[in-house]
Design a binder for these strands. Sequence first.
DNA 1: GGATCTTTGTGCGATACCGCACATAGCCAA
DNA 2: TTGGCTATGTGCGGTATCGCACAAAGATCC
Lengths: 248, 248
Amino acid sequence: MKNHPEGNELLAALPQSSHARIFPLLREVDLPLGKEVYAAGQVENMVYFPIDCIVSLLYVMDDGHSAEIAVVGREGMMGIAMLLGGNSMPNCAIVQSAGSAYRLPSTDFKREFDRDPNVRMSVLRYLQALFTQMAQTAACNRHHSIEQQLCRWLLLSLDRLNGQELTMTQELIANMLGVRREGVTHAAGRLQKLGLIRYQRGHITVLDRAGLERRCCECYQVVKDEADRLAARHERLFEFTESADSAA
Amino acid sequence: MKNHPEGNELLAALPQSSHARIFPLLREVDLPLGKEVYAAGQVENMVYFPIDCIVSLLYVMDDGHSAEIAVVGREGMMGIAMLLGGNSMPNCAIVQSAGSAYRLPSTDFKREFDRDPNVRMSVLRYLQALFTQMAQTAACNRHHSIEQQLCRWLLLSLDRLNGQELTMTQELIANMLGVRREGVTHAAGRLQKLGLIRYQRGHITVLDRAGLERRCCECYQVVKDEADRLAARHERLFEFTESADSAA
DNA sequence: GGATCTTTGTGCGATACCGCACATAGCCAA
DNA sequence: TTGGCTATGTGCGGTATCGCACAAAGATCC
């Protein structure tokens, strides 16, 4: 059912009719590593649909400590708050793996979101997956070791990439997980000794994905299963509504 | 702008026209302390609008450890997942303070949600507040001491109640915060010594609210401010759309 | 090739929290 | 009153993580 095999999965899964109105408005932009797509509290006016980049939603506290709230890749979108009636983002969004994304003015997308039930259904379904991810992240933050969290994080990132390698310093990972850099060094060292990953100055290669999954906490599977479940249901639904687009 | 001074704020803030279709469907139910309104993973078919109870959304892990994801009171609703295209809740929901709630079949409310832009706007706005709360909870879990989290938790609960007293054992609070009961005992003892609260076998009386706020982390204010901001904007919007209800 | 910067590795004391065991105290019911 | 239950208080050793300081190893640039 993918109308657009390339590109963002959320957009690609839309039926033709919805597609036709939204696609002309899209512009492809490059998102370099480390770019702050949204700053916390700033008024923003664009929504983004990642194509091959990964972006982390990060909460930064007064004392400078941070915590990752969720990860967004080609399966989703950024700027949800603008659809929900805010005009600013509560968290900041940082590019974690460089790549490109479609973007369009949030008011344009909000209009389609309001008028087109198919667009709405897609976005709401993604919202549900996002909720699941956030809840799991919160619980994982609370209860699991740095090593387990690192495994989860690597796996979630890997799912959103094509290859087996990510470009990412331990310092950045530490920021995402909200732990010390040394803690990441330690955990990564152990995974490396076990032959699960190879780490070399900002480049991580996953050697044994199944091993990572075994060493990981349950959190990864929960998030992945929910995302898969919603995506599958998504495609099934559109098989029947393809011609029944009832946009105002 | 409150059409229903009593009851749930999310419903009360709806314009008359939306109200008229939804209110006849509501039934008031009692929610006793400790009741599990939703079980994780179960298929559910009701949504709830708390009137004077407080319900915690809780994530319980395989090993039995738990973490609170969010708190819902008369400002919001439960069962969001059913509007977002799931038919089950990913987390469980536990009544933390007994009281009553309106409820109606989720399919009925989903129908109104889909057809009535005013209902939709209200719910989405609440979703935004919920996102903020979840993000803050995740970060707070990661970085703040038990004592700070306890302060936050007490304040959030207090905001959703009328009096200054909550009925709640330390054991339950520990479950919500995802920490040991002894940790809560310790923190509560200190707050008591400082004269901020009084604790007596399952009854907490807040003696010095301002003191709690001072001792708390920033997390409380952030959540509260966002909720207030959205609520205020909410009421303003309906001043203009009261007569422009464009439900299909 | 050498200086410099960034990234990663390591060690050490401090601390917050955990897990457990057990003591105390308020509440209730026989 | 007595006994039993539940809720709270306390102590102790273990552990994960923190914060800091500094060393080592790649990378980069002149």
